[in-house]
Amino acid sequence: MANEEKDSKISRRKFVKNSGYVAGGVVGGGLLGSLLGVNFKGSEQTSTAPVKEAKFNQALMYFTRQADFKTLGAATERIFPEDDNGPGALALGVPYFIDHQLAGSYGRNDQEYMQGPFHDGTAFQGLQSPLKRHEIFMQGIRALEKESQSDFNDSFTSLEGEQQDKILQKFEDDKVKLKGVKASEFFDLLRSATLAGAYSDPLYGGNEDMAGWKMKEYPGSQMSYINEIEEEDFVEMKPSALHEHL
């Protein structure tokens, strides 16, 4: 009684290509175009290749716009780039880690004192922004884009690495004005979240395949080192994740 529809996987890109939805030029207020994302370069292959292992966790819980997510990804990759040592932030899934964290209590500062009044503090009194982290990230990421548009007349994700660094540097040096938070405070959060995403347990969506740990020769969560602690030489171990404890 049921028809099996074969090859029914329609990714967004394929859909648009096949449906003629856009071809007719009827794009509602120029809106659908933006759904395709700013950067589909090279992603064609990944979706047509047979799925090796479905990484369902690699989808978005917090971000709503592809463009924001791509900007975030590009910025984290500059902070922690791919090199001879191994993968950078993108390949480690750091942007997914940050997305999931911003959707959670980290993003909402659930365990932090967020009552007013808010005043600017001295350099020794800690962050005093009334903004929650997810608000800081959203504002900061949009500002990265705005800044690269104004400095280089192009979107952040399309810039050369060095140009991206220049933009990021402006944030780190507080040469950009944000609302309710300093650009350097956003940058610090971005940097620390990038490192956390590179090196936290893969449970949280980053440190993919424990590749961050492998690069650092860190064995993750081991039960014991009682037999190795007195070893004179460096001991290389295959890392182990929290998942192994269940």
């Binding site: 996987k9 589909f40 979706s47 479905a54």
Partner: peptide, 21 residues
Amino acid sequence: EAIMNKEFVKIEPQSLREHMG
């Protein structure tokens, strides 16, 4: 297409992950 089919159309499911390109 499927919505006008009088027969039940079985479609292989797809998750949000597929939208990440």
